[in-house]
Amino acid sequence: MTVKLPLPIARYFQAANGDDADLVAAGFAADARVRDEGRDHLGRDAVRAWADDARRRYRFQAEPRSLEPGPDGGVVTAHLTGDFPGAPADLRYRFTLTGDEIASLEITLRPPEAEFCGRRVLVTGGVQGIGAAVVSRLRRARASVFTTARTAPHDLEEPDGFVAADLSAPEGVARVAEAAMRRLGGLDVLIHNVGGSSAPGGGYAALTDDHWTDALNANLLSAVRLDRALLPTMIDQGYGVIVHVSSIQRVLPLYQSTLAYAAAKAALSNYSKALSNEVGPQGVRVVRVSPGFTETDAASRMIERLARAEGVETGAAREGLMRSLGGIPIGRPNRPEEVADLIAFLASDRASAVHGAEYIIDGGTVPTV
């Protein structure tokens, strides 16, 4: 997928991947400055000599993977392959433009622990369980993360990176989209984690139209509406990643307790695949993550509801839930941090060729290929 770059920056990468140092230098202002490997190169002639020296010493190919726009240029993260020391590597190119020329360029190595540096991320349902683990994981990798939930917890770490809203309602989606864009100034990664089930057990006969509507709004339409609000920004910049968090229940529905939830997650998966086919050519990757039984607060609440409905202890309800899934071959549920690590990988440039796919993390619960 091609990142949309300002024309002078696009011309630079095209020239840098060729063998013509004159063409590289032609894109710079006469008094331009390039800083690379801790050394300054001042003026167009020095830039030409720098480009020529780099090509004589190494063979390399730079693939721009993201752009952080700025008022007078921006920062491009590019993946470099070749025969240079440390290859392959991710580099950050900080451009300052003047008109249609490059006034300055600074090239630095992006350290692995800062793989999301400069990335603007929205995580829905990000204050507990898997969502909270994702927020923590991405912030450690230096992403700018905005998150949302129906209510704010008392111990919220970054209040200015949160808005309370009900994403099952159209007005809640509009509020989140507006707040995220205002706070972040744009969006690079959208992680739909919000969802869940509050319907009673008892199978199909226990579910009213309201239960079905609630499940569809929370688990399907929240993502559909938020994508519709924010995708134009990603398409316009030529870069974006959307991660839809589904569930293995889309293929292993539990009719006793989560029938409507499972059906909504199946619909989300179908929608996600179709969306990936539409927006992939425009620079936006769309992937799905389907966790199995994960030890979250929400899972604990569901186990308590099952225990009350069945008149058993919570431990027995937990074991019963694992058995109803066919068992977990590794002998335990997921941990939220494990799911967060998978989501972080899929949202990163390391997964730049991963698109339209579903990744199951369930300890082997799904028994089919």
Rank of each mutant, 00 (worst) to 15 (best):
D36A: 11
G74W: 06
D341K: 04
V251Q: 13
A10P: 03
A21L: 07
H244C: 12
A299P: 10
F95S: 02
A143C: 10
L80N: 05
P85C: 05
Q237F: 05
L306D: 05
L221Y: 15
L91I: 07
F13C: 05
D20R: 12
L5N: 00
R140W: 11
P71F: 08
I107C: 08
G172K: 04
F60V: 06
V163P: 02
I242M: 02
L207F: 03
V251G: 07
L5F: 00
A344L: 06
A263K: 10
R323C: 07
E337Q: 14
L91G: 00
D227K: 01
S348W: 02
L231E: 00
L167K: 07
T213W: 12
E337L: 06
H244Y: 07
T148C: 14
P336S: 07
N219T: 05
V286C: 01
G283D: 05
A317M: 03
M302W: 14
R332D: 00
A177M: 05
G238H: 06
H211D: 15
E115Y: 03
S104G: 11
D20N: 13
P6R: 01
R182Y: 07
A62Y: 02
G364W: 04
L67A: 05
G131I: 02
S247V: 09
G240Q: 05
D72F: 11
E157K: 12
Q282K: 15
E101R: 15
R55E: 00
Q128M: 14
G201E: 08
H211Q: 07
A177D: 05
E278S: 11
A357L: 12
L220D: 03
A164W: 03
R48G: 09
V354I: 13
R150I: 07
R11L: 10
S348V: 01
A298E: 13
A266D: 11
A114F: 09
F60E: 06
G363N: 02
A347V: 01
T148G: 06
A78L: 04
F60G: 07
N219A: 02
H211M: 04
S144W: 07
T151Y: 10
G196Y: 09
V145R: 04
V354N: 03
E106T: 14
A229C: 13
G196N: 09
Y93P: 04
